[in-house]
């Protein structure tokens, strides 16, 4: 038994074999946090775009718009009401509402203004039909019924608009995913650069470890652990800032179309999963990148 007190093991386990590098690591921490923040915003934006497009296409798919044109000698308002009654009686139709002339005037107001519309101008009236969920629109049956009743009406199932919305949502999602991939690549490149710089700055430590018989793998693990922790911490900071920004965006009032590309926080599992996974992914990317960089560099040393 030694008469002297044996010191306790250093804090930080094997990681303590690398000297603390706080000053050098700070810029990398900030860059990694910004990248993770942008990646989270991109992911939340992609999710927001997908959800919005889902809502819009669902709206479009579960509703029909009937345009009732006035016929000579007839009343457009009566025809619209009859059309609504006919539609409401059909299977799969949840409700049908006939809109009045004032509604039609509001629709054309942007082009003709409110004061310049003569009272006797024949305006088509709108009947809004809402279908029960999962029901295929009975387009042919409606057209046939309107013809039989002598109503001059056209039925629009919004398929043209739904395709456009779906296309826009797919493109915005692809864009967001490409952005995510770019950010992950940038993060990996930044960490590889930083770990090489760290390796070069600590060549004395590496030499001492090598000459004491340390394997490349052993040294790589030291760097890997350090950069995993750095990625984890900066990832957590970036993800938390992204959450705060999403919450702030959600509290502001904006038009529905403006929110299409903006991140939104909706308290559902996706948000919490993203919050948990983003730091882990950042840590894993940093660790893998550091490992590959260190192994490659050490391989050139003998």
């Amino acid at each position: 038994m030694s008469e002297f007190e044996i010191p306790p093991p250093p804090k930080g386990g094997a990681g303590a074999l690398l000297p603390p590098d706080a000053g050098r690591d700070r810029p990398l921490f900030i860059v990694a946090a910004i990248l993770v923040f942008l990646a989270c915003i991109a992911a939340l934006g992609a999710r927001g775009a997908w959800q919005q497009s889902q809502r819009w296409t669902e709206d479009l798919q579960t509703s029909l718009t009937v345009q009732v044109r006035p016929v000579e000698g007839g009343s457009a308002s009566e025809d619209a009401q009859r059309a609504a009654d006919i539609a409401a009686a059909m299977d799969g139709v949840a409700n049908a509402t006939a809109r009045d002339r004032a509604h039609a005037e509001r629709l054309i107001a942007p082009w003709l203004g409110t004061e310049n519309i003569p009272d006797d101008l024949p305006l088509p009236l709108i009947v809004e039909i809402r279908l029960e969920p999962g029901i295929e629109a009975p387009l042919d049956a409606l057209r046939e019924a309107f013809d039989e009743a002598g109503i001059n009406a056209s039925v629009d199932d919004h398929s043209r608009w739904a395709d456009a919305v779906r296309g826009a949502a797919t493109r915005s999602q692809t864009l967001a995913l490409a952005l995510l991939a770019l950010l992950a690549g940038a993060a990996a490149a930044v960490v590889a650069f930083a770990s090489r710089a760290s390796l070069a700055a600590r060549v004395d430590v590496i030499d001492a470890l090598h000459l004491c018989g340390a394997e490349d793998r052993y040294i790589a693990i030291l760097f890997q652990r350090r950069f995993f922790m750095l990625g984890l911490k900066s990832g957590a900071v970036g993800a938390i800032i992204a959450v705060i920004v999403s919450l702030l965006v959600g509290t502001g009032s904006q038009a529905a179309d403006a929110s299409f590309f903006l991140p939104s926080w909706e308290n559902n599992p996706f948000e919490f999963l993203l919050l948990a996974i983003a730091p882990l992914l950042a840590g894993a990317t940093a660790a893998l990148s550091a490992r590959l960089a260190v192994i490659t560099d050490l391989g050139r040393r003998w």
């Binding site: 010191p7 094997a14 303590a16 000297p19 603390p20 001492a208 470890l209 018989g213 394997e215 052993y218």
Partner: peptide, 20 residues
């Protein structure tokens, strides 16, 4: 010398055993 100044004297002396 090439000692690691962020480690104690004990941990410097024990380094070859530790890396093994």
């Amino acid at each position: 010398f090439r000692l690691l100044n962020h480690l104690s004297v004990f941990d410097n002396a024990a380094l070859p055993l530790r890396v093994a």
